[in-house]
């Protein structure tokens, strides 16, 4: 029972960052119909920016997280303007291939710049865990969960309460009508891709200090982000949050009680199960021809 409670806490912390990753990816797909293969690389980028700022430039830890997110936002905007804007009329598969090419460039540029050795990001948090009865958790992890929750809330407010958010949702539902109504779809796309990328970079900057920062850290995470959005339904925002937490819990409990070795496989097995039993998925969308 004690062990189960500990797994619940760990799963929640993990799920929070997964939700951040998933929501960025699903937003980009929902608005732009782009399957973003650079998402894992933006995660890595955020983590390395946090490392560079904190460990090399000795910038304040919290400020570094903000800056890393901003840099991720900027990189996302750049990718959209240079690569995706010219591809607006192209089919979904060609865009995917361009994004795979971009991911190759980003990952290897990172490897070239930072070297292959994993780095540790110093944090101002105490290394001693906080203890609540049978459960213990590092202050850093609680902070990560808090920031992830705040970012999700801010993002939701942005979408619901601001003009930009309304434009984004309108494009999400029907790009053509939105553009007829005066929404500048091009800029909505840039903003969307930048925000999605910023969320991925934020997730990297948050999780980097919890584990370690290495050039290939985004590989598995990028694939997991796909798993999350498939679970919740591509382009479904609340679905991504649910999918994120679902994956966090499945990994944590599966790893703890079934097999620690297969921990990373549970998410992918879950998808294949969902599709085998319920081919229309948890949330059916029009992409699913069957």
């Amino acid at each position: 029972m004690d062990q189960a409670l500990q797994h619940l806490v760990n799963g929640t912390v993990l799920g929070g960052t997964y939700a951040l990753l998933g929501i960025g990816l699903t937003l980009i797909f929902g608005v732009m119909r782009v399957v973003n293969f650079t998402h894992g690389e933006l995660y890595t980028f955020g983590a390395y920016m946090a490392y560079g700022l904190v460990a090399l430039l000795h910038v304040d830890f919290f400020l570094s997280l903000v800056l890393a997110t901003m840099l991720g936002l900027a990189l996302g905007a750049l990718i959209e303007l240079v690569l995706l804007r010219p591809m607006r009329k192209a089919d979904i598969d060609s865009v995917m291939l361009v994004m795979i090419g971009a991911a190759l460039v980003l990952q290897n540029a990172g490897l070239w710049a930072w070297g292959g050795v994993a780095k540790l990001v110093p944090t101002p948090f105490a290394g001693t865990p906080l203890v609540f009865g049978p459960v213990s958790v590092l202050p850093l992890r609680l902070f990560v969960l808090g920031v992830a929750a705040t970012l999700l809330l801010v993002f939701w407010l942005l979408l619901e309460r601001t003009r930009a958010g309304i434009a984004m949702r309108a494009t999400f539902q029907d790009a053509e009508t939105a553009s007829l109504m005066g929404v500048r779809v091009g800029w909505v796309h840039t903003a969307t891709f930048a925000i999605g990328s910023g969320l991925a970079a934020a997730a990297g900057a948050l999780l980097g200090p919890v584990f370690m920062v290495s050039p290939a850290m985004g590989d598995l995470v990028g694939l997991k982000a796909f798993a999350i959005v498939i679970l919740g339904g591509l382009g479904n925002l609340p679905g991504a949050v649910i999918g994120g937490f679902a994956l966090g819990y499945v990994e944590e409990f599966g790893g703890g009680f079934v097999s620690s070795e297969y921990r990373d496989a549970f998410g992918f097995l879950l998808i294949i199960l969902v599709l085998a039993i319920r081919p229309q998925g948890l949330v059916a969308l029009k992409e699913r021809v069957g």
Binding site: Q3, Q6, F211, M212, A216, L220, G256, S260, R263, D264
Partner: peptide, 20 residues
Amino acid sequence: TETMTPEATDLSAQLAALKQ
């Protein structure tokens, strides 16, 4: 003996088992 794959970063499951 608990094992981990070479690239695993989250070892909480193995450590939870060893704690028992």
